[in-house]
Amino acid sequence: MAATYSPPTLGQSLSSALAEARLRFVNISRYPGQLVLEIIIPIVFAAMPMLLGRATAGAQAGANFEANTGTANYVAFLLIGSNVFTIVSNAFWHMAYWLRFEQETGTLESIYLTPTSSVTLALGLSIYSAVRALITASVSYIAGCLVFRVNPFQGDVLLACAFIAVGLIPVYAVALLFGALVLKVKESNALIGLMQWVVSFLMGIFFPVAVLPPVVRWVALAFPPTWMTNGARSALLGVGFFFDKWYWDMGVLWAFLLFTPLFSFWVFNRVENGVKRNEGMGQF
């Protein structure tokens, strides 16, 4: 009697994804220092331009910053940038490094022999990564504001949270796209290193994207984190939405949310099949 294979049901896939997320949570619970560092890094990172600006511009720092960005509250502006950057950067690191780590340790091939699809595992990883990043970024933003003596709860906090939440799905979809690139090129560290700085540049981590040259600005606007960052900044600090009203900007993020995952799954599956056919899965 031959065993027949039937694809996993939706419930089984969800269970696998949650098991993958749980595995990651158990793993990170063994390294609490990493979480503490994730809270400290965005604060230190935002402090760099802050300290340089204060030292070089002196008492004019706030006024100059307002003239260039639309708000004198440079502490919150920079902290929002560095924390959204951490969320986006985490998505890229976790997705790409997951694949690369499995490749390096020789377990990626074994994973592909299980009946669970890699996209299901990527979903579990995304759940873990998003929860982890949201918690650490929120704590980091509040702690940073308190350290630099700024009210973290000014403006429309709920709207800012909505921009971040809606933006997360397209961000993880782009990260999956990036995972496909790592599968293909196999040099995750360098690619992630470059990518996270390109992301920070395009999303306007410490400056409004309006200062970028026109062509670069258009590229930046085709990138979901740019809308997340500006949405959160506008909701909290009133620097101005791209389309003047919040719901238009939110509409663009929703368009990203519907389109990006489909496109990413398609690309990832194509690359994955190509790598499998060429027996490159276990190579690094």
């Binding site: 760099m48 331009p49 340089l52 600006g53 204060r54 070089t56 511009a57 720092a61 100059n64 910053f65 260039n68 960005t69 440079y74 920079l78 040099e187 360098a190 690619l191 290193g193 470059l194 700085w197 390109v198 920070s200 540049f201 981590i205 410490f206 400056f207 200062v211």
Partner: peptide
């Protein structure tokens, strides 16, 4: 990539400083 990374870091930090 590491070459490109340095150039982007430099640009990001420069633009950040210029905002002040």
């Amino acid at each position: 990539a590491s070459f490109g990374q340095v150039f982007v870091i430099v640009t990001v930090l420069t633009l950040a400083g210029l905002m002040f």
